[in-house]
Amino acid sequence: MMIKTLHKDDRELLEGLIEARPSAVRRLYDDILPAVIYWVEQNNGTEDDARDLFQEALIALFRRLENGEFELTCTLKSFVRIICRNLWLTHLRDRRKIDATPLEEVEPAEPDADLLGQLERSERNALYFRHFDDLGEKCRQILAWFFEKVPLAEIARRLGSSENYIKKRKFECKEKLIRAVREDPRFEELS
């Protein structure tokens, strides 16, 4: 995967994000989150909103990096701030609170279509993650492998089970996840 940035530091941080390196994530928090909290609080939000938003932004950015070549035409700090602003305005629109500060006219970069798609769905994604976390450990493992397109026979081998059993468990786990998502009142609002 090719990452182009204006500054070497930014490239290292993005590589750290892709590798889920705790030191890189910590630096992103130290360097960027205070400004995001400040801006969200000026726009009808709380510190907790900003923290949730920041995590959604980093996961969306992670997914975008996974999808191939990525070129940053401004600093990483600016870019994450732009993502967060986009996300927050989307959230406010979803909550029918549209009196947010409009985005500045002078923006250094625009998220590309791929990333915009991630941002548009990010609240739904957060909801999916939340219900996924509520599943049992074995369910999470089976589904994680299944979504990664690991064949059922291979999942069975890794867990020391039969393919038929894994197929049945996979269905039960997915059914449980889908039911929980559909029963969540936020899901209707976000659809």
């Binding site: 994000l17 889920a20 996974e66 999916y128 979504f147 998502v181």
Partner: peptide, 15 residues
């Protein structure tokens, strides 16, 4: 959307 959001072990590690 579930498949796209939850696929890959690395995203769970990052979370």
């Amino acid at each position: 959307e579930l498949a796209e959001t939850l696929q890959g072990e690395q995203v769970h590690r990052l979370r």
